[in-house]
Each structure stands twice: as C-alpha cells, then as structure tokens.
C-alpha cells in the first residue's frame, strides 16, 4: 500500500517545467482521462499528475508580487532599483518627480 518510498514510485514534481508546458500537459491529461481507455492504475497516476500540475500552475500564477521598479543611477554610476507607485487606471508613475530620465 505505502509506496512513498524511493523517488521513482512517487509522483514526480514538475520542477523545471514551464507554465505553458504544464498547461498543455494538463489538457492532455484531461483528454486522456476523458477518453478513458487507460487502465485504472494509469488513470490514478494521471489524475495525481494533473492535480500536481494544476497546483503548480496556480502557484505560478500567484507567485509574482505586483512590483514596479525603475532603474536609477546611484553614486559611482551603480544602477539601483527603485520601487515606484503607479496609478492603475492610467499606468502613470505617481512618484516620478525626481526620477532620472535615462541611465546615461
């Protein structure tokens, strides 16, 4: 019953898989399960993989944190990031008073 042991048996984690690929794979899994001509074992494996991929995709969608930064030249010419606020409706940077217009 318990087959968590040994990396092979357990459901593999979609570590380096891209979002698009994960999404595509999800669709394939859905199609495969809907067609239903795979064994019960395989169905369960596919289902587990689907659950994993869906979780991965959801996490990936939400993992970014709304953050708008602008690069500014600091002392000694080092470029630094500066967080700015934007007006969502217009896309306007609201605290742009002392912003440099270029990195030159």
């Amino acid at each position: 019953m318990e087959k968590k042991k040994g990396g092979k048996g357990g459901p593999e984690k979609p570590v380096k898989i891209g979002f698009e690929k994960a999404l595509k794979e999800l669709e394939e899994i859905a199609t495969r399960l809907e067609e239903g001509d795979i064994s019960l074992d395989e169905s369960i494996r596919q289902f587990e993989k689907g659950v994993q991929l869906a979780r991965f995709c959801r996490e990936r969608l939400d993992e970014a944190e709304r953050k708008i930064e602008i690069l500014q030249k600091g002392e000694g010419g080092r470029v630094k990031r500066k967080k700015v606020d934007v007006e969502e409706d217009t896309g306007e940077i609201t605290n742009e008073d002392d912003l440099q217009g270029s990195l030159l």
């Binding site: 970014a64 709304r66 708008i68 930064e69 990031r81 896309g91």
Partner: peptide, 24 residues
C-alpha cells in the same frame, strides 16, 4: 509608452512585476 505598457500589463496580470530602464 510607459503608461500604456504599465496600464495594459497590470490590467491583464495584476501581480506582474515590471522593471523600467529609463531612456531618452
């Protein structure tokens, strides 16, 4: 341009991260 880009990007993806490199 920067306004349009920020506006559209955030409308489509509210938690998008954006880094602006200012240019003349």
């Amino acid at each position: 341009a920067v306004r349009d880009i920020i506006k559209v990007a955030l409308r489509r993806y509210p938690n998008m991260e954006i880094v602006i490199a200012p240019a003349i």
